[in-house]
């Protein structure tokens, strides 16, 4: 739970961008959109877990129920 998560998301982002570029040049643009979508979903799930963890800690810390 440190700075490495930022780099992980950056890596996924750059990877999906490169993959979609390559696929588009090969002429398979619909697979490119699917690849970008898959990367987006992975990152979305990761970020949602972190956001829910933050809100749980906030709720327990400040006693907001």
């Amino acid at each position: 739970m440190g700075v490495d998560i930022i780099f992980k998301i950056a890596a996924i982002g750059i990877l999906t961008a490169v993959i979609s570029q390559i696929l588009q040049h090969q002429g398979k643009s619909e697979i490119a959109t699917l690849a970008t979508l898959a990367g987006l979903v992975i990152v979305l799930i990761m970020v949602m877990n972190m956001v829910s963890g933050l809100f749980d800690t906030l709720k327990s810390l400040f006693g907001l129920y």
């Binding site: 700075v3 982002g13 961008a17 987006l40 990152v43």
Partner: peptide, 18 residues
């Protein structure tokens, strides 16, 4: 890279700072 992960990086940085 004009990818929309930039927004997610913002969210995660805010989380880590907190």
């Amino acid at each position: 890279y004009k990818s929309d992960f930039a927004f997610f990086v913002n969210v995660v940085t805010g989380l880590l700072i907190f």
